[in-house]
Every structure is written in structure tokens, then in C-alpha cells.
Design a protein around this nucleic acid. Structure first.
Ligand code: MN
Ligand code: MN
Ligand code: ZN
Ligand code: ZN
Lengths: 128, 128
DNA sequence: TTTATCAATGCAACAATGTTGCATTTAAAT
DNA sequence: ATTTAAATGCAACATTGTTGCATTGATAAA
């Protein structure tokens, strides 16, 4: 036994799966039908992240946002989520560009483990 | 009259200029010879950022770090600081790779204004 | 089904980061 | 020297995230 299914985790995963952009803790809480503690959400998301179910993107505001991982993961290698993100300065939405992968060779001696590629500006909806 | 020179600002700029990596608020405070309020530092750094004197990088920890801008800026166009950064998970240092510029065409409708390109892992010093 | 185990949760308490309002200080133009 | 408003100090606050510990509950085993 390692990981257990719970209503809270189901609900969080449901919300993230149905969203077409990355969600912050607050945004997830607001969309939750089931009610549970704030700390629980932190632990759920951290857990999901470690399992490779979701990935985290940090915006210019320093706030974490989470999105489900679309790319395939093997048991031996979780995908790296080294793709581009776009945060709208107007509406606050953080988009995942899953197909816009960024492959960079690190300078000698630097070993890459996580990626946080984000651009900020205005999204199409806010560009009228 | 727009911007005034002060000891605080001189000190912050001195510290940032002499550092070979980006510094967080706390790191700057610790290196400060002159003493001034925490809020003042926030305002100084925000001001520098708007003037294009420094740029901000946000790490996986959600904390802002600042580094002087090495590339040239014109009055009409501040440089974009669209270069790669590397944050060490061990020692916490955030490096600027000023020559590793990332030029990406945004998807239609998205207008880019700020950039936050960061990779995390272990730096050469911590790779023993 | 019942029992045992420990992952998951709730709650309180806390730390860190960042923001705002307002009175005071002070750089620098006049 | 006088004037102006940029810069600062201080208090108060909001938000985000973390930790410890008792309790609950999912699930494997009896
Ligand atoms: Mn993504
Ligand atoms: Mn940089
Ligand atoms: Zn938008
Ligand atoms: Zn290091």
C-alpha cells in the first residue's frame, strides 16, 4: 500500500483535468464542490507533482499554478514539462503550450532537473 | 525632477553589481552596510526594475531574485531579459546566463511583455 | 466481515513574503 | 534659502506556504 484514493484527490484531479489552463491553489479551492482543508490541498498537489500527475508553474507573482501533465510518463522517467507557459497580466490565466518544448543544453557542470519557462503579457481574450 | 539618488539605492546597486548571481531580498539585506527598512528595499527594487536597471527572476520557491541588466537598453526599448536562468536546488544560487537568449514566436494573439526562463537543478559547485 | 495499518486529513500555530496608507525626511531644482 | 515631491520609516495587513500532532478513513490482511 502506498497511495490511497480519496474524494479530495478525485475532486482536485477532476478540476485540473477539466481546466484548459493552469490553476492556482485559490482557483482550485473556488471550484471545489467538496470542501476540505487548505493544508490538504497543498499536500495533495505536492503529492501529485511528485507522482508526475501534475506539474507546477510559478508566475511573476510568485504564486504556484498547477496543470495536469499531458505528455506520457514512464515509470523510469517522468516527463520534464519543459514546455512554454504564458501568463496573462490582465486576466491572470496561465496557459500551457504543451507542444512548445524548449530543449537547451546546459552550460558545463549544471545539471537540470526542473523547468519553469514562462512568458507574460496579454492573452488573445484580453487583446481587444 | 523624477528620480533622486540616495544612499539606500546606491548601496543596493553596488551589491547587485558586485554579485555574480541574482539576489533575493533577504540576501540583499544581509549584505547591506547601510541599514534601511524592508519596505524601502521592495520599493527600490521595483523602481530599478521599471527603469530597466535590474530584472527579476522568480524561482520554483516563488521568491523573487534580482540581477543587474547587462544588455544595453535604449530609451525607447528596454531589453527584455529573455535569457536563461539556473537556480541551484542545493545552494540556492540563481545564475544569469546572459548569453543564452531564448527567442520564441508566441502563438497567434499572445503578446509577450516579460520573460521568466528558469531551470533548476544542481550547479557545478554542488555537483561533487 | 472484522481487524490492523498507516496514508490522508483537520486544526492550530507559525514563518516568510509582499503590500498599503500615512506621516516624515530629504534630494535637488529654483 | 526656499520649495517640491521623491524617498523613507513605521505600523498594519493580506497572502502564501509550512510544520506538528491528534484523528479519520482507505485498504490490505486475517
Ligand atoms: Mn504546462
Ligand atoms: Mn538574468
Ligand atoms: Zn487574459
Ligand atoms: Zn549550488
Amino acid at each position: 500500500m502506498q497511495i490511497r484514493n480519496t474524494k479530495s484527490k478525485d475532486e482536485v484531479l477532476r478540476i485540473l483535468s477539466q481546466s484548459d489552463y493552469a490553476l492556482s491553489h485559490t482557483e482550485i479551492e473556488n471550484q471545489c464542490a467538496v470542501a476540505f482543508d487548505r493544508v490538504t490541498l497543498y499536500r495533495i498537489l505536492t503529492g501529485f507533482e511528485q507522482q508526475g500527475v501534475v506539474h507546477k508553474i510559478v508566475g511573476n507573482d510568485g504564486k504556484a499554478r498547477y496543470a495536469t501533465c499531458k505528455n506520457e510518463c514512464t515509470d523510469h522517467e517522468h516527463h520534464k514539462d519543459n514546455h512554454l507557459h504564458f501568463g496573462c497580466n490582465d486576466c491572470g490565466k496561465m496557459y500551457c503550450f504543451d507542444n512548445k518544448t524548449i530543449e537547451l543544453k546546459m552550460p558545463k557542470g549544471f545539471k537540470a532537473q526542473q523547468f519553469n519557462y514562462a512568458v507574460f503579457g496579454t492573452c488573445p481574450d484580453c487583446n481587444q
